[in-house]
Design a protein around this nucleic acid. Sequence first.
DNA 1: ATTAAAATTTAGACAAATCTAAAAATTTGT
DNA 2: ACAAATTTTTAGATTTGTCTAAATTTTAAT
Lengths: 229, 229
Amino acid sequence: MYFCVNKYLMTRSEENYIKTIFHLGRKGTQEVATNAIAELMETKPSSVTDMIKRLSEKDLVNYKRYQGVSLTALGNKTALNIIRKHRLWEVFLVEKLDFSWDEVHEVAEQLEHIKSDKLIDSLDRLLAYPKFDPHGDPIPDKNGGFKERDRELLSEVPVNTGGVCVGVKDSSATFLKFLDKNGIALGNQIKVMEIEEFDGSLNIEIDGRKMQISHVIASNLYIKASDEI
Amino acid sequence: MYFCVNKYLMTRSEENYIKTIFHLGRKGTQEVATNAIAELMETKPSSVTDMIKRLSEKDLVNYKRYQGVSLTALGNKTALNIIRKHRLWEVFLVEKLDFSWDEVHEVAEQLEHIKSDKLIDSLDRLLAYPKFDPHGDPIPDKNGGFKERDRELLSEVPVNTGGVCVGVKDSSATFLKFLDKNGIALGNQIKVMEIEEFDGSLNIEIDGRKMQISHVIASNLYIKASDEI
DNA sequence: ATTAAAATTTAGACAAATCTAAAAATTTGT
DNA sequence: ACAAATTTTTAGATTTGTCTAAATTTTAAT
Ligand SMILES: [Mn+2]
Ligand SMILES: [Mn+2]
Ligand SMILES: [Mn+2]
Ligand SMILES: [Mn+2]
């Protein structure tokens, strides 16, 4: 009847593990390694094993000793719900409270654990149902559905093509502040003019202005190819 | 230089105890009894004693065995900061997310523990620096200063006087929904027409409309006396 | 196919926050 | 003043989430 994602008591720690397993499961093989979780969460592998057992008890993950871990359907839904909250709060902080995009993550890490369906639905409405967060990442809808936007890394597109900057791969404060300093933001029109043989750095034109960026920078910027160049 | 109220790691549980001690210390003697805390927090006295010792270690409360507990200056400031957050979030929920005044408390209990000075300052600005929460309770400013509004219980004023309804003493969902059902809200002009000898119930005129309310209801409504009756 | 290295799990300990049951101190009633 | 009732504290146990150190399993290398 009324489909609850997971009202059943989940601790903050459990939610963080589920979220981490989700993120690691996306990029790479389905089965997530204990050590990978430990590294991302800055904790010890033994702690991870302990928690995995608890999550397994609650049917949030599939677990076979020594074989890695993966989310169950319930775990997946739970993860998407937390990510939805995280990203909606990030939009709120930027749109309504004038946070910059490098300041939102830390606070969203706290806000994502607030339990109230009504709260998050109302927030969604207040923000006019945004589809993407300040870093260009998609916001799952209340059923956990979301569309991965069609996009490519700027470092992957050939010379003389381009598009609109729609996201960042690395969303660390350091990188985001670097982008601010250099006047690079989501929505900018970017065109690759030339790629240096020597170090792979790119000469680009961004909203009419010419500049040079390193390969590392380009490999952390997503663009959506525009047909008319 | 930069005066932090209490950035130093406080757990959610510690914050809840501090808040409870603050509320109990206001109405009554300064020293708060262990059992009173336990009852309000729906926990056991032995748990309270344990926590009091921890809070005492951190110089948030003054404690002498068997003699009750009181907040230190630091504890007081901490309590006011939590209450500020609680009440600002309540205003946000009502003003921006269309919550009704009986729905906000539960969510605010969670939101009050989010740690971010910038967040709460920005929220304050978004809400245009409100002075009172949806239940008429004053919102401390960022230095912990707040003015207890000049107000009296409706049950205490003499016949033929009145004023504006500015707050509720009991802010339980049950009472608030009762008020909604009977069209009583903050801002209403209330005048006491007659007080029944028999059971103390009151005939009142509220925004022009006549009605009868029990003594219990009247003793949970605050009004601010208006000079012109 | 063994052995070495790496990953993972277990065992045992610890701090936070809670509980129950029992002991100690305080307050109350006569 | 002194026994009884009440309040408060202590002692010991439990759950959650973490750690270190040691054992086990898997993977990689020769
Ligand atoms: Mn984030
Ligand atoms: Mn984001
Ligand atoms: Mn409240
Ligand atoms: Mn309130």
